[in-house]
């Protein structure tokens, strides 16, 4: 369970360009469910996602993860939580060019110092699950958009996180590949993982696999008074 209490985020505080991205969000995200954050551009979806995923801190408010307050934790602890609890799927895939798909998949596990043999075996198994075993030793730049995204998904799973966070996962995919992505989300759900997706693609937030849709506008939950 992820709980948010009056979360606010202000960028460029004190400067003429000061901008408030989140204006007091209180929200509960259930475990083992698929939740979609939706809303127009600039509504604060990605900002909220990065705060939940311990990538940035809120300016005000609190975030609790399984009952544990995480907003005030030092950087090192946040990194540890991010590494073990969350798996990230990025819109632009954010894979590192020049190295193979397999190496990209293994990267999040490097700081944990796991032995190479078992780690490689797990990575290969996960790549196989998403029909990528043939591409394991291909460089990232040689992969198609759909393949690159699936490599990004496998990378998110390498540390066996309990929460999968996906930022606009279908924005660069065609309809067929978007459905393929939703099938993969279905398997996450079956595996008992919590999935949190930002998307303004109706194909995603109207999908049957989605349990809850949270609508944002101007940094607030839709329907809440400014």
């Amino acid at each position: 369970m992820i709980e948010l209490f009056d979360v606010r985020k202000v960028f460029n505080t004190g400067k003429p360009s000061e901008y408030s991205a989140l204006n007091g969000i209180s929200l509960n995200i259930s475990s083992n469910k698929v939740t979609v954050l939706t809303g127009p551009s600039g509504s604060g979806k990605t900002t909220l996602l990065s705060i939940i995923g311990c990538m940035s801190r809120p300016t005000a408010g609190r975030v609790k993860l399984s009952g544990r307050e995480i907003t005030s934790l030092p950087e090192r602890f946040l990194t540890d939580i991010r590494r073990k609890t969350f798996g990230f799927i990025f819109q632009q895939h954010n894979l590192i060019k020049g190295i193979t798909a397999l190496e990209n998949v293994m990267l999040p596990a490097y700081p944990l110092g796991e032995r190479h043999g078992p780690l490689k075996e797990r990575a290969m198994h996960l790549l196989d699950r998403l029909d990528l075993s043939r591409k394991a030793h291909s460089r990232i730049e040689w992969l198609s958009g759909g393949e690159a995204q699936r490599v990004g998904i496998v990378r998110a799973l390498i540390n066996d996180p309990s929460v999968i966070i996906a930022d606009e996962p279908t924005s660069n995919l065609d309809t067929k590949l978007s459905y393929r992505f939703l099938e993969i989300v279905e398997t996450f759900k079956k595996d008992g993982k919590t999935v949190l997706i930002t998307s303004h693609d109706p194909l995603v937030y109207q999908a049957s696999v989605v349990d809850e849709v949270v609508r944002l506008r101007d940094g607030r939950l839709e329907g809440e008074a400014p």
């Binding site: 979806k45 990605t46 990065s50 990025f90 632009q92 930022d167």
Partner: peptide, 12 residues
């Protein structure tokens, strides 16, 4: 720098 710079790269 906050790691969300990687996310920011994607837009929004």
């Amino acid at each position: 720098i906050d790691p969300d710079a990687a996310m920011r790269h994607t837009g929004e």
